[in-house]
């Protein structure tokens, strides 16, 4: 469970450039809820995700994960619970490392990175099986550098990497924004499948209202740092793209 209590984030506080990116956000997200966040540019969606991930520290308020106060934990510590998918497909993977090395890091996300060699034939087989599920033909290219793959391929691998180790929460910041329409649809479907199959709590930022209507069981609209609409389960199911469009006029 994710609990945000009166979370505010102000950039450049006390200067003429002051921006109140988040204003007293109170939000409780239950386990296995899949929350879609929509809103105009600058409405605070990414800041909300960054504050939950620990990339940005809130100016005030508290954040609890499974009841534990993690308000000021940095991102690498919160990775115990949280896996992240980035808008830029190149950010979620290390391009100079092999696919296998990338998966090894993902497989020990919640563990200590110790002085032992973790890549053995058993691990390779496991990675091969997981990658084969994507059906992209990448399972025979484990030793290849990540940098030789396309953005879509890398984003697909990032999704699989997110569930190589225990994860409770997955944060997706416009994961398909940089991809062509066909690949984007594929990535969204795969993300949805993984969230369902592994029973994850998901938060997805998107500008695609079609995706927003299609996926998730809760939807938030943000405006000027506040949550102005919060629609859950049954009601969400009834919402159409047209209903969502009306939010933006």
């Amino acid at each position: 469970m994710i609990e945000l209590n009166t979370i505010s984030k102000t950039f450049n506080a006390g200067t003429p450039q002051q921006v109140r990116a988040l204003r007293d956000i109170n939000l409780t997200i239950a386990d296995q809820e899949f929350v879609i966040v929509v809103g105009a540019n600058g409405s605070g969606k990414s800041t909300l995700l960054n504050v939950i991930a620990g990339v940005a520290m809130p100016s005030s308020g508290t954040i609890l994960l499974d009841g534990m106060d993690v308000t000021h934990w940095e991102d690498y510590r919160k990775s115990r619970w949280i896996a992240r998918i980035f808008q830029d497909p190149f950010m979620g993977t290390a391009s100079e490392l092999s696919i296998l090395d990338n998966f090894r890091l993902a497989a020990i996300r919640t563990h200590k990175k110790g002085l032992s060699i973790g890549i053995d034939s058993k691990f390779k087989t496991k990675v091969q099986e997981r990658i084969a599920m994507l059906g992209l033909g990448l399972e025979d290219k484990l030793e290849q550098r990540m940098g030789t793959l396309s953005g879509g391929q890398r984003q697909a691998l990032t999704l699989i990497m997110a569930v190589m180790d225990d994860a409770k929460i997955i944060l997706l910041d416009e994961p398909s924004a940089a991809l062509d329409p066909r690949t984007a649809a594929l990535i969204m479907a795969k993300a949805n499948e993984i969230i369902r199959e592994f029973g994850l709590t998901g938060i997805l930022i998107t500008h695609h209202l079609k995706d927003a209507a299609l996926y998730g069981n809760r939807i938030l609209l943000m405006r000027e740092g506040s949550v102005v609409h919060d629609i859950k389960a049954d009601e969400k199911r009834k919402m159409t793209v047209g209903d969502l469009q009306n939010w933006f006029v």
Binding site: E74, Y76, S79, R80, M91, G92, A94, L105, K113
Partner: peptide, 23 residues
């Protein structure tokens, strides 16, 4: 080649990624 070594190599390559991996 160890897990620690992979984390080291990834640090210089993609800091965002490696922090998301708990490093």
């Amino acid at each position: 080649k160890t897990d620690f070594g992979i984390a080291i190599r990834a640090t210089g390559n993609s800091e965002t990624m490696v922090r998301a991996m708990g490093v």
